[in-house]
Simulated assay, not measured.
Amino acid sequence: MIELMVVVVIITLFAAIGLRLTTSVLRSNQIINQSRLFKSTFAIAKARAIEHSAPVRVTVGNDRSILVVWDTSRTGLFPAGQESLILGFDVTTGNPSPYRNVVLSPEINDLPHYTGIAGLTVEEFPNNEFIILPDGRILSGTPLQTTSGTFFLASDSFAIDGRPEYQAAVHITAKGEVKMAFRDGHSGGEWNWIE
């Protein structure tokens, strides 16, 4: 009977460890996949700007939504009634956001520049919004100017020290290229540019 109890305890221990590891892998894959979803959304927005020969505005909401519209007036001012929905969360119809278990995180200042050149900063877009011109350039801010920016994502689960379990950054260059970085919050590890 004692031997049977020891075997049951050992099996339970291995099952608990396996479950924890599996959950951790699933969560890390989830935030990487959500980052790739952001990346593909921006690629679609850029393609539409070129296709329509018109500016496209991308807005990322704190409610995990993304709204992509193109300016049918082609002025870059996006006047009311002159915007056409391309994709994303449409507040008028209440369509749910495809982004799950991921939250926009406040600016993370310790993200190194993807080129590895010291002194170059990686910052958020003002108001989590930018405009893509038909030539692929990215404009943001007030007044609008060519710029790059980063969206920081975090899993809604936390590591022991209170930091997000996993963090990701989707960086968009002024030329419209997309770079992605990832960090494991358990180890307090370094950022790794993965794409």
Rank of each mutant, 00 (worst) to 15 (best):
D184A: 13
D63Y: 00
N95G: 11
H52S: 14
V91W: 07
T12P: 01
P112Q: 07
E3S: 03
M180A: 11
P96D: 10
T115I: 06
A159D: 10
L77F: 05
R100S: 13
N29Y: 03
Y99Q: 12
W70G: 03
Y99L: 15
G136L: 03
G94I: 04
T59L: 10
E129C: 14
M180T: 10
A169S: 09
L153W: 02
L13H: 02
T22K: 11
S140Q: 11
W191Y: 05
I11C: 14
D110H: 04
I86T: 11
P112H: 06
D135K: 02
S155Q: 05
T59H: 08
S97E: 08
V170L: 11
W193M: 03
V102D: 01
R74T: 06
A15L: 08
G141V: 01
E124S: 13
Q167L: 13
V91A: 15
F130S: 08
I194W: 03
P134A: 07
E51C: 09
V25A: 12
L139M: 12
H186G: 13
R64N: 10
M180C: 07
S97K: 03
T59D: 09
E124F: 02
V178A: 06
A154N: 02
I31E: 05
I10W: 01
I117Q: 12
E177T: 14
A45L: 02
V170T: 07
G61L: 00
L111K: 09
T93H: 05
V103E: 15
G162C: 07
L26Y: 12
A54Y: 00
S157I: 13
M1T: 12
A45W: 02
E107M: 09
I132F: 02
T115R: 07
N192H: 15
T142H: 05
V103K: 15
Q34C: 08
T142P: 05
M1C: 09
P79E: 05
L19P: 01
E129M: 14
T59I: 09
S157T: 15
W193D: 07
L120Q: 14
E129Y: 07
I117E: 14
I32R: 14
V122F: 09
I132S: 08
D156W: 00
S84G: 08
A168E: 09
Y99H: 14
F152D: 02
D135M: 04
T147D: 11
I138L: 04
S140N: 06
I117N: 06
P164R: 13
L85K: 08
S157C: 10
N128F: 06
G176E: 04
I32E: 11
I11Q: 09
L13G: 15
I17G: 05
T121P: 09
I160F: 14
A16N: 07
L26V: 10
T150Q: 03
S140A: 15
I32L: 14
R64A: 05
T173M: 04
L13A: 14
R64E: 05
L87S: 09
P143S: 06
A43K: 09
K175S: 12
G81R: 04
